[in-house]
Design a protein around this nucleic acid. Structure first.
Lengths: 230, 230
DNA sequence: AAAACATGATAGTTTTGCTATCGAAAAAAC
DNA sequence: GTTTTTTCGATAGCAAAACTATCATGTTTT
């Protein structure tokens, strides 16, 4: 079976569609790798232009600035995540199984679906881990939000909240729990790698502890609001 | 009773102690307010110098760069938080009461202790909310950590984890739970203000929902690991 | 063949981030 | 109570970042 992503980042994100030209694709693919290597703060269009042997001005024809570029990358990430969730939970009936599968996906411990994006999926995941909060922790957050640019993240969060609601309809904080799971699935491994005093999930890249941690608090809190479902 | 903070930010954080001079104090007090107003990205020493009618170079004599300056502010925040926790839990015996009190403190719903720092506590809290992750989500995180500059945050997290361990000694993820509580106590209100689709805690500044959300998942998960304690 | 568009090449602006120097004034040491 | 050190103001300057503008050239579309 050949699944194809048709979901594309919002038009407003890029000045012109990077998937429509060789240069555009190169900017995205190589830009992803460069940002992964040197980090958002050190990333500049000038450096990217030098790497892919083009000019700074050419990149500015595709993206207004590096913040939009990061948001473009994260939009891919969120779309791929949500798509993976949809496909992976398709054949599951049991709510608790669905939640378990979901947690594996957000903890980056589910097999990647085949895609033809040509994106470095590992780099994309690590960028999401280290840089994603920088797209919304800014003074301009409300304007960006008004342009609907966080919709993919909100949709993903909403879908997860929906699963929680299915499992425990009376739980009053499904969306907060969903954003907590999403954020912690990123942050706990980052802490494990760099600030191990802040976590117990282990730096050895072993995702089982992370999954166990996430499952433990998700099911504990949801089970309190189900009558003998467990 | 007149409690006095003697805890001071790490020496390495500032080039010279800002509390030792009029200018230094002005940099910190007014810098806090300016960063709160325009956000970390737009904050520059040049702008701060203009506001307090001094020169850029003079500020550089106190702080290497704005990242260190933010870290200095957050160190105050974490120290004040931990101190508040220590003082507020002093007279509590019951572990569950301690945790409840702790959650109120991190949710910014406990009365501020008197201090003589002269810092705008509200601005400090909002900076912690919106900017704190920017101090550790950087490529240089390991170097900064080696300088012990995250110690106050780690200590705070460790103390909270200790309380969880006291309540439920067999729970295997006390530190992850502590960092989750700390991070979500910041992030959920931010979402409520700017991205309400990601939360249920309500934007009306009402902290009761946040407290209820945090308590719900902390006690749910910990109670699973206590034998009939609840 | 003409019109439309994409890119390269070059240049230039403003802001940021930071360093250096020098003299005057204020504080500390003697 | 004056020397010595420290602090700060004042000015300068530089390299990089974050853009914008223009024009020519090549490449597609029509």
């Amino acid at each position: 079976m050949n699944l194809r992503f048709t979901i594309r980042p919002n038009d407003k994100l890029a000045l012109r569609d990077p998937e429509s030209s060789e240069l555009g694709r190169k900017i995205v693919r190589q830009g992803l790798i460069l940002m992964h290597r040197i980090g958002y703060e050190h990333f500049t269009f000038r450096k990217l232009a030098a790497e892919i042997e083009t000019k700074e001005a050419s990149i500015y024809r595709y993206f207004e600035n590096k913040h939009r570029f990061l948001l473009y990358l994260l939009t891919w990430h969120w779309n791929i995540l949500e798509y993976t969730v949809i496909v992976s939970l398709r054949n599951l009936d049991d709510s608790s199984e669905k939640i378990r599968a979901l947690i594996r996906i957000v903890a980056n411990n589910a097999p990647d679906l085949d895609d033809e994006t040509g994106l470095d999926r590992n780099a994309l995941h690590e960028i999401a881990m280290a840089e994603s909060s920088k797209v919304y922790l800014i003074k301009e957050v409300d304007e960006v939000n008004r342009e609907q640019l966080f919709k993919p993240y909100k949709d993903l969060c909403g879908r997860i909240a929906g699963l929680f609601g299915e499992y425990a309809p009376s739980y009053p904080y499904p969306r907060s729990l969903a954003s907590t799971v999403l954020e912690m699935a990123q942050l706990q491994p980052y802490f494990a790698q760099h600030l191990p005093a802040l976590t117990d999930v282990g730096k050895d890249g072993d995702p089982e502890k992370l999954i166990s941690f996430l499952e433990s608090f998700v099911f504990s809190v949801l089970d309190k609001h189900t009558s003998g479902k467990k």
